[in-house]
């Protein structure tokens, strides 16, 4: 017991001991609540149960109906594309807006300030296609969601929906 890690911390650096005990306590709370607040992370590493889906979807960019292959796109642009599609599906409403209004009230100064800097608005959605064109140095791009089914040991395109 005398030579355990915690005992050494306690004897040699009380401040570090308190910090680490505080860190462990917060980590346990956030793990229990299954949410993350930096630097208290939950390392699930694909632990969420994945069940077979009827359709698998991806977002594709087309230049004059010619598909731009996704692995030629910067990684963060792919994530931005997903957010674009999600916001359109949610009628341009960012989930965080509701959270802010629940916490700090509707139309308060603080809520308005936080909504401006923490959330995505309709203007961002409107400007997104132009930003993508600038990033890829291309014009006349269209963005589509493609729906695939896993049939006969391969993916088959069953539908697509134009977002822009």
């Amino acid at each position: 017991m005398g030579n355990t890690y915690f005992y050494k911390l306690l004897k040699h650096n009380m401040l570090l001991f308190i910090l680490i005990i505080g860190f462990i306590t917060c980590q346990l709370i956030f793990t229990y609540k299954q949410v993350e607040t930096t630097p208290f992370f939950n390392y699930g590493m694909y632990s969420e149960n994945c069940l077979p889906k009827k359709t698998y979807q991806t977002i594709a960019i087309f230049e004059n109906e010619h598909k731009i292959v996704q692995d030629q796109l910067p990684v963060f642009l792919k994530y931005q594309l997903r957010t674009y599609s999600k916001l359109i599906a949610q009628d341009s409403i960012d989930d965080v807006v509701n959270t802010i209004e629940n916490r700090f009230g509707k139309e308060t100064n603080l809520s308005n300030y936080l909504i401006k800097y923490l959330t995505n608005n309709k203007r961002s959605i409107k400007e997104f296609p132009k930003w993508v064109e600038e990033q890829l140095d291309k014009t006349k791009l269209s963005i589509k969601i493609e729906y695939y089914e896993w049939l006969n040991e391969s993916f088959e395109l069953i539908n697509s929906k134009k977002l822009h």
């Binding site: 993350e36 931005q80 957010t83 674009y84 965080v96 923490l118 959330t119 995505n120 959605i125 997104f128």
Partner: peptide, 9 residues
Amino acid sequence: APFVSVEAD
């Protein structure tokens, strides 16, 4: 970059 996501962090 047009979009940000702060999630619940």
